[in-house]
Simulated scan of single mutants.
Amino acid sequence: MEATHKGTRNVIVVNGPNLGRLGVREPDVYGSDDLAALTRLCEGWGSELGLHVEVRQSDDEAEMIGWMHRAVDEQTPVVMNPAAFTHYSYGLSDAAHMVTDAGLPLMEVHISNPSARDSFRKYSVISPVATGTITGMGFYGYRLALEAIAHLLGA
């Protein structure tokens, strides 16, 4: 991925474990739409903002860390829903820190509000290194994160 795509700025949207099961997993918490619907929304919102959005999902912590390294190397801003890795992945936290250390926006997003759920979900190892955090807004939180990136980039 290059820093620009057809005159627009590239942004990656990275989703962590179990988000490939959207629409099936706990629809009362995450809604009934699936990852394909989220992908279409993010791509459309990005287009409206002059951003080329690529949505990714992995259940593999190492793959997500690799995506953060690639974002730094290619100077690509990041929207990240680290899912369960939010609470304990110091490797992902370190990689996210590299993104912001490179001067790139990294917006942390959660479909639900982790602070209103199980006690183990109340702490994020990503929030302290993220540019900003949006929680509890459903899929709309991704739009807010993309708008924040567009604003920060002056797009």
Score class of each variant (00 low, 15 high):
residue 133 T to M: 00
residue 23 G to D: 11
residue 96 A to M: 13
residue 17 P to V: 10
residue 8 T to R: 11
residue 120 F to K: 02
residue 140 Y to N: 08
residue 137 M to F: 14
residue 85 F to W: 08
residue 98 M to H: 07
residue 40 R to I: 08
residue 24 V to Y: 04
residue 36 A to H: 14
residue 154 G to C: 13
residue 1 M to C: 06
residue 82 P to K: 02
residue 142 Y to D: 00
residue 73 D to H: 11
residue 50 G to R: 04
residue 111 I to M: 07
residue 91 G to E: 04
residue 95 A to M: 12
residue 80 M to T: 07
residue 7 G to K: 10
residue 5 H to E: 11
residue 104 L to C: 15
residue 53 V to H: 12
residue 32 S to W: 05
residue 96 A to W: 10
residue 129 V to T: 01
residue 80 M to P: 02
residue 139 F to D: 01
residue 7 G to T: 13
residue 149 I to T: 03
residue 94 D to I: 07
residue 62 A to M: 05
residue 109 V to Q: 00
residue 6 K to D: 05
residue 25 R to D: 01
residue 29 V to N: 07
residue 22 L to W: 01
residue 35 L to N: 09
residue 135 T to I: 02
residue 153 L to Q: 07
residue 103 G to V: 10
residue 62 A to F: 07
residue 105 P to H: 11
residue 123 Y to F: 06
residue 16 G to A: 12
residue 126 I to P: 01
residue 146 L to D: 01
residue 79 V to K: 05
residue 22 L to F: 04
residue 101 D to C: 08
residue 46 G to Q: 12
residue 49 L to F: 13
residue 137 M to V: 09
residue 58 S to I: 10
residue 97 H to D: 13
residue 4 T to M: 09
residue 147 E to C: 03
residue 135 T to K: 02
residue 59 D to V: 04
residue 127 S to L: 00
residue 99 V to Q: 05
residue 43 E to M: 12
residue 25 R to T: 01
residue 129 V to K: 01
residue 139 F to Y: 06
residue 21 R to N: 06
residue 119 S to T: 15
residue 9 R to G: 00
residue 97 H to N: 15
residue 90 Y to R: 14
residue 34 D to G: 14
residue 53 V to F: 07
residue 79 V to H: 04
residue 45 W to H: 14
residue 70 R to I: 08
residue 64 M to C: 12
residue 54 E to C: 02
residue 125 V to R: 06
residue 30 Y to V: 09
residue 48 E to M: 10
residue 148 A to F: 06
residue 144 L to D: 05
residue 91 G to Y: 14
residue 75 Q to W: 00
residue 95 A to G: 09
residue 16 G to W: 14
residue 75 Q to V: 01
residue 132 G to H: 01
residue 131 T to F: 02
residue 7 G to S: 14
residue 38 L to Y: 12
residue 127 S to F: 03
residue 106 L to E: 11
residue 6 K to T: 11
residue 17 P to C: 05
residue 12 I to R: 10
residue 23 G to V: 10
residue 100 T to M: 13
residue 97 H to T: 13
residue 88 Y to T: 14
residue 84 A to P: 05
residue 93 S to L: 01
residue 138 G to K: 00
residue 100 T to W: 12
residue 11 V to H: 03
residue 21 R to Q: 14
residue 91 G to R: 14
residue 102 A to Q: 12
residue 40 R to L: 06
residue 118 D to F: 07
residue 119 S to I: 15
residue 137 M to C: 10
residue 141 G to L: 06
residue 27 P to K: 11
residue 115 S to I: 04
residue 97 H to C: 15
residue 12 I to A: 03
residue 123 Y to K: 09
residue 146 L to R: 01
residue 86 T to L: 08
residue 76 T to F: 08
residue 109 V to L: 09
residue 36 A to F: 05
residue 122 K to M: 00
residue 110 H to P: 03
residue 125 V to S: 02
residue 128 P to W: 00
residue 144 L to H: 07
residue 51 L to Q: 02
residue 91 G to D: 15
residue 36 A to D: 08
residue 123 Y to N: 12
residue 111 I to G: 02
residue 66 G to E: 09
residue 30 Y to L: 10
residue 92 L to M: 15
residue 124 S to G: 05
residue 127 S to R: 03
residue 92 L to P: 03
residue 101 D to Q: 07
residue 27 P to C: 03
residue 33 D to C: 00
residue 89 S to F: 12
residue 19 L to E: 04
residue 43 E to D: 00
residue 28 D to C: 01
residue 44 G to D: 13
residue 22 L to M: 13
residue 37 A to D: 14
residue 155 A to T: 05
